[in-house]
Amino acid sequence: MPDIGGDPLFVLEFGDILHYYTPYTITLFLLALIFTGLAIASRPERQIDIAFGGDAYYAKETTVSEMRFRRFMAIACGLATLGAMGSGDLFNFTLFVSLVGIANIGIVAAVKNRHVLDAAYEYGIVAMVATLPLFGGAALVVATTGTLAIPALAAGGFAVPLVAKAFLALGVIGEGMAPFYAAKAEMFRAPGAPYVIMCSLSSLLIFLRVVEIVITI
């Protein structure tokens, strides 16, 4: 069992796949849970904009249908993050991560704002392309070691190639858009607070998790 996040507290047996929770991943899991709860419970903010050239201002309203859809996507994103936090299997992890990427696009895709949609489009392309290094990394791991189970890999005795780790990290970076901040900053102009926050939360969390995985395996 991996121990860099502390000793595992809880192991969920799920067929040939284990879900395990160390103090580290359970912290991440709980935070994802809390923010998903907030996304469900909160009403969206009404963003105030100042009319240019005067002292007039107006509040942007989020329509009900848009709010429903974005809330649905935020919840999907939260659930995918929850899955990625506990997964003890590399392939499952990559699947959850790509689900996070798609749900992130969904959260902003409903916004009717050209700048936001432009940024979301660029982000979407990167999120799609990033599945290649992501699954490629998992495939390299299984080809060179014959197993995908993180606890088994962590137990040692396997030589996981460095490039597989690099691919995994790069894939997660692409899905979560972590260091390529430009598009994410544009996307955050979208009104409706609790939903956009899920974009950033999920990408940070999957990034934190992949750091643990890469150090462990």
Binding site: I4, G6, P23, T27, Q47, I48, F188, P191, A193, V196
Partner: peptide, 27 residues
């Protein structure tokens, strides 16, 4: 305990900042 947890919390402070900034509706 693990310093990974500490640094995870440090990163998640960002999310708290987003929450503060975006929840009010103020530009």
């Amino acid at each position: 305990e693990s310093i990974l947890i500490l640094f995870a919390i440090y990163m998640l402070h960002k999310i708290v900042e987003h929450g503060f900034g975006l929840s009010s509706g103020s530009p």
